[in-house]
Simulated assay, not measured.
Amino acid sequence: MTEVSWWQARALAGEAMGDSSGEEVPLANALGRTLASDAVALTDLPGFPTAAMDGWVVCGSGPWTIVGTIDTGASSVSHLDAGKAMRIGTGGAVPAGATAVVPFEAATVTDSRVIADASDRTHIRVQGEECVVGDVLAHRGDVINPALMGSLSAAGVDDVAVVQRPWISVLILGDEVIRAGVPTTGQVRDALGVQLPGWIHMLGGDVVSVRTCTDDPQELADALRSASGEVDMTVATGGTARGHRDFLRSTLEALRATIIVDGVAVRPGHPMMLATLDGTPVVGLPGNPLSALVATVTLIQPSFDAWFGRAQRDLPKVAMAEGVAPSSRPLTRLMVGRRELGGFRQVERVSSAMLRGIAHADGWAVVPPQGVHAHDAVPWIPVPWMRRTDDR
């Protein structure tokens, strides 16, 4: 199988997972969840004309005679006659006939009469100014943030339909990998098993198991077979290249898995894999840590986006601070960097085996094979803790 382009790999990954299912949850418990359907307003906002300021609600031209008070939370009087005024608080129900709310600081009161200069501003919020019944306040695939929770609550929503989070199993491959202590010659610390659950969680999944496997094909086969059918995706790290100790490809073939992606024209991260085993997607991440993260946003993130109903949304754009020369080969480059004044700029220490650069970066700029000029806008992939929730 020949390698595919980076964009092809993302498209294929978006088709790999099965259908997601939804559930109804109280709005108060929905923070961070993804909407399974559009959320609509159940009431007009405001639901009635309201005062936008503390002041005097008046009818007609002044001066106005004070005839009472409208308390916030109380039903409005039915009508306000010309030449009359009533004390009102912000959010109070404005009676029919009212023409303006005069802020307290803009008025003087003498002998129970309100005196104020005419103003072009009425300080009255009309019914439905923000939304009316049936308006779509958030779309399927949007992640629920605190402000959206408030918006939905104000519009009368008590419960929301959300997508159930996919279950993920992670396999850490390699005889050289140790999980604790200072590594000696020939050993490396596990830098992926400790961080992948966090990446997956922030992308929307739940890691239900992390298992370490030695470079033994039978142990790997048993682990892949055990995870298949119990989770929505299996993620394996390492073993995707073609070295004499890389067994993921041959093990998947022995298990009669369907290999969908076997190498991607991208740097870093080229030796990544995507397969299905008994209907369960298996993502193979390269062993080098930064390459593994590139594979994560190439294969796992698009799979999750499709699962959550965000597959058709374009990547956001960022302007480049500096030009990038054309590649010597037809491959996409994912440049680790930060957004600064002047545009997106690459950070230091970004080779495929390093994590120091991405740990302090905003994300990856997607640089096409032909390169880019300074100030060109290119797609970019924010790290998940900086993702926008409504990119469309």
Rank of each mutant, 00 (worst) to 15 (best):
A319P: 04
A96S: 14
G323S: 14
A106I: 00
I300G: 09
I178C: 02
N145L: 09
L27P: 04
G150L: 05
M272P: 08
Q370C: 05
D71K: 15
T332H: 12
M149I: 14
A30Y: 07
D278M: 09
V162H: 02
G357H: 02
A319W: 00
P286I: 04
A36Y: 05
S75V: 11
V235N: 01
S327H: 14
A16G: 10
A321G: 10
R121Y: 13
A306Y: 12
R256V: 00
D390W: 13
A82D: 13
V350R: 03
G55H: 04
A98W: 03
V114P: 10
I260W: 04
P316R: 05
P217K: 15
S250Y: 01
P146G: 01
P281K: 11
T258D: 13
S61F: 00
M53L: 10
G134Q: 07
A41W: 10
R249E: 13
W385V: 08
I358Y: 03
S226D: 15
S291C: 02
A154Q: 12
L255N: 11
T280A: 06
A377N: 09
D206E: 14
R387Y: 01
D222L: 14
D71A: 14
T2G: 10
L45V: 13
V235L: 11
H139N: 08
E15V: 06
V188I: 15
F48G: 01
M149F: 02
A30S: 15
R140H: 10
V366F: 09
P379M: 05
V194H: 00
A82F: 09
A321I: 00
G68H: 06
V160T: 03
E130K: 12
S112L: 05
V207N: 03
V133L: 05
P166C: 10
V101N: 09
G238F: 06
T65W: 06
R388F: 07
M53N: 11
V194W: 01
L196K: 04
G97M: 11
L293T: 00
G91P: 04
V208Y: 03
K317G: 01
Q370W: 08
R256A: 10
D158N: 11
G243R: 06
I300D: 05
E219P: 00
I178D: 00
V231P: 02
G60A: 02
Q8S: 15
V208D: 01
L137M: 05
D190Y: 12
S61M: 05
R338H: 05
V266W: 14
E322F: 08
L224S: 08
